[in-house]
């Protein structure tokens, strides 16, 4: 289990600054949501932690390991960070079965076939996909693909799991069920979660702590009870977001 510390992160795309001096500390086993409108920089923070983007400046620490320090040239590539990630588009590989998709991280790590299949089947059961291991992604519903992506993120038992708008492509009813499932699994295993969303109801329901962002700046940080009355979460703001 690991904490995540982001120190003085700077990132610009094509000269447009997205983050300037972003700081955040996520405790071990904590469930933190980054909440904000699209373009506020929340996904960039997530991709920096993952190692899919490189900061122009700043340092990222996972547990007691510095995974990135721009001033010292320290850089651990994403494949070596042992961080799980669930993508907004699911990123389920269309040319592999459900089993092959979920077992892939174990395969890369060199786990023997029998062992990784057994392990995969238990994970599939945990996310509610028992019996579907032979299917192709094209034969799955959106919610099922989402579960495949979640299972793949969990199978390495990562210390940190990153979720990028994981529920935004699902219908309302499924969304509520999935977020309960994610929270349950996290509480069972105790890993650290950074969760990106633009849906404030979702963030309030699922998180230990919320980080409200706008244009790369943190407007407020706190438990759901602490930030519930923040101006950003006014009904008007929500209305705008929906529109």
């Amino acid at each position: 289990m690991s904490s995540v510390t982001l120190t003085d992160l700077h990132k610009a795309f094509d000269g447009n600054p997205v983050l300037h001096g972003f700081e955040l500390e996520v405790a071990q086993g904590e469930f933190v949501s980054l909440l904000g409108a699209s373009g506020c920089g929340k996904t960039t923070v997530l991709r920096l932690v993952a190692g899919l983007e490189e900061p122009d400046r700043g340092r990222i620490t996972v547990g007691d390991r510095v995974v990135c320090d721009a001033s010292k040239g320290t850089w651990i590539p994403p494949e070596a960070r042992r961080i799980g990630m669930v993508f907004q588009s699911y990123a389920v590989w269309p040319h592999m079965t459900v089993l092959e998709n979920v077992a892939y991280p174990l395969k890369v790590a060199g786990v023997a076939r029998a062992e990784r299949e057994a392990h995969t089947l238990t994970i599939l059961e945990r996310v509610g996909l028992a019996g579907l291991e032979g299917r192709r992604p094209a034969q799955l519903s959106g919610g099922q693909q989402q579960r495949v992506a979640l299972a793949r993120g969990l199978i390495m038992e990562p210390d940190v799991l990153l979720l990028d708008e994981p529920l935004s492509n699902l219908d309302a009813k499924l969304r509520i069920r999935m977020r309960a499932d994610i929270r349950r699994i996290q509480k069972e295993s105790g890993f650290t979660v950074i969760y990106v969303t633009h849906d404030q109801d979702e963030a309030l329901a699922i998180s230990d702590r919320l980080v409200i962002m706008e244009e790369g700046v943190i407007l407020a940080v706190g438990s759901p009870d602490e930030v519930r009355d923040h101006a950003f979460l006014s009904p008007e703001a929500e209305h705008e977001e929906r529109a």
Partner: peptide, 13 residues
């Protein structure tokens, strides 16, 4: 979708 490749890297590849 480039996240198909990103997902493989996050899987350790």
């Amino acid at each position: 979708d480039p996240s198909l490749e990103d997902a493989a890297r996050m899987s350790g590849a």
